[in-house]
Design a protein around this nucleic acid. Structure first.
Length: 791
DNA sequence: CAGTGAGCGAGCTTCCGCTTGACTT
């Protein structure tokens, strides 16, 4: 057994480090935090100075056991968790849980995983920084108090199973406010004038000049007046201006910028980017993928330099060290970069290859020279006016520098007329008009957030951490506060006025306006909850709230403030508001009166029901005792925008569409969309079918198709026991007995199974399940913690 | 994953940040 035990957070990191240290060192990993507050209760003792009650979750038991075994035999335990608040806390929890003695515990930190950095760390140990630990405890307790007091308030006042928190509620607010900005946006229109000219002294294709007038006109009349006014003008080169320019590469990737670029360039979702990056990291191809630092190690800098010089030459190399300016960055790691810059391609599938290439290029580019440009502006004078000029702008790359391999993408494409090379012209030279045209344009509303642009915004506000960006996006969608949605926008008619050969021609063109695909859009419930929280908890919903508490966490870390004192100051006014809201706020329903149903004379409302947005026909408290009718909204409808007519058509369901083999077919719509009910079985209606339009023929087709698919799944049935069926499922063949599913071991051919064997397998399966459940109840485990992951 | 919605009342839901496999019908 080795004399030294080093504990880091990630197992992949442990593996790498073990190689750097001699055989006297064993390196193990804590797999992140080893204990936390029990998620089934508040676990903060408010009366006792907010003492947190920590608990080791079931999945961490094994890790602790293992670490404890090795720690007991080691002479020195090196706590090498990340150098930030969370890392310090993990070190402290390890110290406590493993019951380490101070004399044989050393705390070390390193920012990069190189032999040199680690040896240096070993030579400069310290002890646990309890102020930093306290800052983490304050962060943890604050988040728990906010989350676990606000969420129940929402269950009571809005809808069960909702949630609120310091981070997620502000993320939803951003999306809700963007939606209102767009809703309230009043587009204005303007006319942009462009001219196309020919050079008289040259006769090749390049003898053309495209230019834009340095003025835009607000109305069609003004544009027409101008076109008429300048008709018959001569055009002369007034001025040629050449200015040098340069472009500088973007810094290497952090989690947030990687997510943004992978979304823009590769179309990856934030979660997919992180999953693929994790795979690359585990294969040792890239450095750690959850980081807010743009720092590169000396080793990385020199590797990049060598590679750039080798590939492109000395003039392309420029060593740069970037500084992190992100709010609240903790810089426990390097930027995301390839571990070996000489490796130009890596990955085991296409997605990995693409992401690796992106990271390699970005890292290389960050160490390359600026691109040098020449910007040329040609001004053209108009003989019949001296108020305005036409300007032609061109940009030529003189030295490509980093642009040779990489240029960053933007969310919004700028509307500019930048030609590449402009023809050479002389001042005073006359040029010939081909045509002048005025194109109508509309100002566009702000763009809705994508996953990646939301991450960018959150990072700017200092809200959330690299490890939580992807989970935040998943949470706010799981709670149905926001959804990804396409927006068709509007079609607008844009005028084109073209002046050519002394005549003005008027044409029009249909333009799509406000069209967006797959953008984060608030739901009714998201809007309602945001308004509720804004009204009652303005402080927590403030975009600066996190920044303010972070400042106090820093003070705690500096030893200038006691953590429970900070929580004390925050908690009591907050808690009072929670109590007051519980007592005084009415339940929020978001009810909107749509009008009166002409058939029944009853009122129609849209509001939030227990399971989402609904429309209601009639009163809930009707004096005659009549009950109202309800119907759920369709996917693309919302309380805000639904019309009376649309609401009334929702009440047309359920209805009988016809009969099939003597039995009735009913069409209706439920929690998971429209369905057919036939012979006590549900049949989902395909998305592209309108449930109101479905006829008997179509319904029978849907029923038949599903029945055939079901039949194809069945491998074997037993006439004597109709409840026992052998089927093919997503995870291979299984036996269905009543409502129970029993997997069939791979070595058994499902076709060969007899009824008796099926029942035997069931018995075995239930026994092994029972014994597994028993082993879960180890004496150390208090509560079962569900593993995180898929739905 | 199941096909509701009032209102009653049982019992349930929930936070943010660190980190990976185990497990699905």
């Amino acid at each position: 057994m080795a004399k030294n035990l080093v504990i880091v957070e990630s197992p992949a990191k442990a593996k790498t480090i073990e190689g750097f240290l001699g055989k006297d060192f064993t390196v193990k990993s804590s797999f992140g935090h080893i204990r936390d507050l029990d998620k089934n209760k508040l676990s903060v003792d408010i009366q006792n100075d907010f003492a947190p009650q920590y608990e080791i979750s079931e999945e961490k038991e094994k890790i602790i056991e293992e670490l404890s075994k090795v720690a007991q035999k080691a002479e020195i335990i090196w706590l090498a968790t990340d150098e930030d608040r969370e890392g310090e806390a993990i070190a402290w929890h390890l110290y406590e849980v493993l019951e380490l003695e101070k004399e044989r515990t050393k705390r070390i930190v390193f920012h990069e995983i190189t032999k040199k950095a680690i040896q240096q760390a070993i030579e400069n140990p310290r002890f646990i920084d309890f102020n930093l630990v306290d800052a983490q405890q304050a962060r943890r307790v604050l988040d728990r108090l906010v989350g676990y007091e606000l969420s129940p308030l929402l269950w009571k006042k809005v809808k069960p199973a909702l949630s609120a928190g310091r981070v997620q509620s502000v993320a939803v607010r951003l999306i809700v406010e963007k939606e209102f900005e767009i809703k309230n946006f009043k587009p204005s229109t303007y006319f942009r004038v462009t001219g196309s000219f020919e050079l008289l002294n040259k006769k090749d294709d390049k003898a053309q000049l495209l230019a834009e007038l340095d003025h835009r006109f607000p109305t069609k009349e003004a544009a027409l007046e101008f076109l008429n006014h300048i008709m018959g003008s001569t055009y002369t080169i007034k001025n040629v201006e050449k200015k040098p320019g340069k472009r500088t590469p973007a810094p290497p990737f952090t989690t947030s910028t990687l997510q943004q670029e992978a979304a823009r360039k590769l179309g990856f979702s934030v979660a997919r980017t992180m999953m693929i990056a994790q795979q690359l990291y585990e294969d040792g191809l890239i450095t750690y993928m959850r980081t807010d630092s743009v720092n590169l190690s000396d080793l990385a800098l020199s590797m990049a330099k060598d590679e750039i010089i080798k590939l492109y030459g000395k003039e392309y190399s420029k060593t740069r060290q970037y500084t992190t300016r992100t709010k609240g960055a903790q810089e426990a790691h390097e930027a995301i970069r390839p571990t070996n810059m000489k490796l130009h391609q890596a990955g085991r599938n296409e997605a990995q290859l693409k992401l690796y290439e992106l990271i390699w290029k970005r890292t290389m580019a960050s160490q390359m020279s600026d691109a040098l440009l020449e910007k040329t502006t040609i001004a053209i004078s108009i003989s019949k006016t001296n108020r305005y000029y036409f300007l032609s702008k061109g940009e030529v790359v003189i030295f490509d520098g980093f642009l040779k391999i990489y240029s960053e993408s933007a969310d919004e494409e700028k509307e500019e007329m930048n030609a590449g090379i402009l023809p050479s012209v002389n001042v005073g030279e006359e040029i010939k008009e081909k045509y002048i045209s005025a194109n109508q344009k509309f100002t566009t509303p702000p763009l809705r957030y994508t996953e990646a642009s939301l991450v960018k915004k959150l990072e700017e506000l200092g809200i959330g951490r690299p490890s939580t960006y992807a989970p935040i996006i998943s949470t706010i969608q799981k709670r149905e506060y926001v959804e990804k949605k396409d927006h068709v926008g509007q079609e607008k008619t844009a005028l084109i006025l073209t002046s050519k050969n002394g005549k003005i021609k008027e044409e029009s063109k249909i333009e799509k306006w406000g069209f967006e695909k797959g953008k984060l859009t608030p739901t009714d419930i998201g809007i309602l909850v945001t308004q509720f929280l804004m009204h009652n908890f303005e402080n927590i919903m403030d975009y600066q709230f996190t920044a303010r508490v972070e400042k106090e966490f820093d003070e705690i870390a500096d030893g200038k403030l006691k953590w429970n004192q900070m929580i004390q100051r925050f908690y009591w006014p907050f808690h009072e508001t929670v109590v007051k809201t519980f007592e005084t706020q009415e339940k929020v329903k978001g009810e909107r009166l749509l009008g009166v149903d002409p058939a029944s004379g009853k009122k129609v409302y849209a509001k939030i029901g227990r399971y989402g947005s609904i429309v209601q026909l009639g009163e809930t408290k009707d004096p005659t005792g009549q009950k109202p009718r309800f119907a759920g909204l369709k996917k693309n409808q919302s309380i805000e925008t639904i019309t009376l007519e649309e609401a009334l058509s929702l009440f047309k369901l359920p209805r009988t569409v016809g009969f099939y083999m003597g039995k009735e077919i009913i069409v209706s719509t439920g929690r998971y969309g429209p369905y057919l009910l036939y012979s006590n079985t549900f049949y989902s209606i395909p998305k592209d079918e309108d449930p109101l339009m479905i006829n008997q023929e179509k319904a029978i087709q849907i029923i038949e198709e599903k029945n055939q698919k079901e039949a194809a799944k069945i491998i074997k049935t037993f006439p004597e026991r109709p409840d026992v069926v052998i089927q093919n499922g997503r995870y291979g063949p299984y036996i269905k007995i009543g409502n129970e599913n029993i997997p069939i071991p791979k070595k058994i051919d499902p076709q060969s199974l007899e009824l008796q064997q099926c029942l035997e397998l069931q018995k075995q399966y239930l026994e092994s399940k029972a014994s597994r459940a028993e082993s879960e109840e180890s004496p150390l485990t208090k509560k079962k913690t569900k593993p995180r992951g898929k739905k």
